[in-house]
Design a protein around this nucleic acid. Structure first.
Lengths: 360, 360
DNA sequence: GCGCATGATGTAAACGTTTACATCCCTGCA
DNA sequence: TGCAGGGATGTAAACGTTTACATCATGCGC
């Protein structure tokens, strides 16, 4: 039972018309309270569940929002979905996900296949340029872009404040006394990576250290960080700090330096970007830039809902989400004025054993 | 444009009836090939997209499957979704997710709200007992349970082979020469944790070490592992190995032991369960049991599709997914006959610095 | 007591598909 | 030439809702 019970069956059982049943269910005004109560009782008794397809057909609302995501792994993906899901559920919206899009064609297919199933779309895709979007989406479907090269598109855009985060970290490293700060970049053309690089350069420029800029190629992978690490210690004079465009490269670099028996942070400091969970557990714990991924998801959904209710409502695009410096021990001690996260160690991590050069 | 174009508009533009348009789109037989081509051309030209709600209404198929998940974090969640999504997309199915269900009421609400939106359900929830499922799901809706206490339910069930994995790890520890093996358990009543505990006991029993069993309470959290670590080293004689029911507890324990300046694995060995990404990056890298989460998702979806096509097709429930021992360095050297993962270190990790007691 | 506003309820159209059935036309065979 | 058969196409019903509009009863002011 439960399936196959229609509004008509309920109407018959309750001795009213289908319209009354519908009104009772949707909480319309202008109904006798006792009638409503009776209908609701009968409906519950029959375990009636409205057919959403029929409802959507007439109301033109699916109460579902779709997400188009690239081939993401790990914490980033789950936190993003988590933030979106929480915000969506709070509004009674369902979540249709389509992830793992490796190329533009797959992303386009996903876009098209969501037609008519969703009231709005949350899109994060390196391939989602204005052309692709226009070709595969009806103009009437609200959408919000995440971490896209905003501005050029007619869609609202939300991004991590990559530039601001990298700038803050560069300042922090300088404040810690480092001067020769190397940077391990992201893959060419990657938006996040490019912004972080810009922030690094801005930080150096501020301190009059432009001539010290030292950029190594990277691919956001542990391997590329490892390779960059081996390369950068051959430089003379050696850099006294490394800032990697993401945590995985910082960790790869960390291992490379340890292979050469360099002591971190005494011999050389390391900083990353993202604050992935692993960052807290390597030896020594990694100083990094935290990005609130769940918050990005939550904000994007909020923005999308606003867009759905009043298209073109807020056009102050792109919106930036702030980052936060998380100071651990991989960059040496620092007690200056920058924003430090109180919660950077939710749990007291043991001091790395046999690690010289650290004060208590 | 693109929205608002209906089959009727296409029919008019192509000079045929709506039935012909429908037939052309759905690849029916008994159609003149040229007519079909013409209709398809017109439809594409008008950027026609069929309305899924209307289609679902009449066909009673949504081509969507729903997932009900508990409040999961991190890698586990993303890998699971990833496996499901890949398998679903391959079959042209959409994915409706509902995660973060903290209690039974939320799970029940999620179950009900998916009515009529999905053709089948993938459920992982500690609250999803037979009663809850029966009360909130129509009998006609196919569903597959993941990691539930199988057998008692009329739904097909898939689970990680927790018992087998824990047994294999216990054997491995014994084969490494350890005798006094402590176990840090999961939260009381947790199915996975209980099965792992059973596997531990079975392993000890096999080796005639039942009297050495030593179980400490844990909550699957780093904190509880840390606490258990401090507790277990006060025992005399001290355990020579610790097997934690999951990696986070193993890591908490690892830090506790390092705080006491114990050398791992010389003084005491540590093993975990799950192979979370962090496991490879702690010092020393953690030996653990790998569970193929994405594979679990993929299998569950495959099973669900089978169930949708032929209800009650395969009742050999519950189905177990094998685990795999991943040998790193936290348990000492071992070259015996157990199944070792070749890929346990996708990338050469540097030897932990200043870590005595390890051979090359 | 009469008309009228108001509130409760019923009737039926509409949403955009799919598909059973009817119709038409063409081919092949007697 | 006539007729059966069958392939192509059209007609219209059905899916389960919501909602504009019609209807009906009730109470109120005069």
């Amino acid at each position: 039972m439960g399936l196959g019970v229609t509004v008509k069956d309920v109407a018959k059982a309750a001795g009213v018309s289908v319209a009354s049943v519908s009104r009772a269910l949707n909480g319309h005004k202008n109904m006798a309270e006792d009638t409503r109560a009776r209908i609701l009782g009968v409906a519950a008794g029959m375990r009636y569940m409205p057919n959403d397809a029929a409802r959507s057909l007439i109301t033109r609302r699916t109460h579902t929002i779709g997400t188009i995501l690239p081939d993401l792994h790990g914490e980033f993906f789950s936190e993003l979905i988590r933030g979106i899901d929480l915000a969506a559920r709070a509004r009674g919206l369902h979540l249709l996900v389509s992830s793992s899009h490796g190329d533009a064609d797959e992303a386009a297919a996903a876009l098209r296949s969501m037609q008519g199933r969703v009231d709005g779309l949350l899109i994060m895709s390196p391939h989602a340029d204005a052309g692709l979007l226009h070709a595969n989406l009806p103009d009437s479907l609200p959408a919000v872009l995440m971490n896209a090269s905003g501005g050029q598109s007619r869609y609202p855009t939300l991004s991590i404040d990559n530039h601001g985060g990298a700038l803050a970290m560069t300042r922090h490293l300088i404040a810690c006394g480092h001067r020769r700060i190397a940077f391990i970049a992201g893959p060419a053309g990657n938006l996040d990576g490019d912004e972080r690089l810009r922030g690094y350069h801005a930080g150096l420029a501020e301190a009059g250290l432009t001539h010290e800029a030292m950029v190594f190629a990277g691919e956001f992978t542990e391997e590329s960080g490892h390779a960059a690490g081996h390369e950068l210690i051959r430089r003379t004079p050696r850099p006294d700090a490394v800032f990697a465009a993401n945590d995985m490269m910082a960790i790869g670099c960390l291992f490379a330096l340890r292979e050469r028996n360099l002591v971190i942070p005494t011999d050389i400091a390391i900083a990353g970007f993202d604050d992935i969970p692993i960052a807290r557990y390597v030896t020594p714990p990694l100083t990094t830039v935290r990005v609130r991924i769940a918050e990005l998801g939550r904000s994007a959904l909020t923005r999308l809902v606003a867009e759905m209710e009043a298209p073109g409502s807020s056009s102050e695009s792109p919106q930036l989400l702030p980052c936060e410096i998380v100071v651990r021990t991989s960059c040496g001690q620092y007690f200056g004025p920058y924003n430090r996260s109180k919660s950077s160690n939710r749990f007291p991590i043991a001091a790395p054993i046999n690690m010289p050069g650290r004060e208590t």
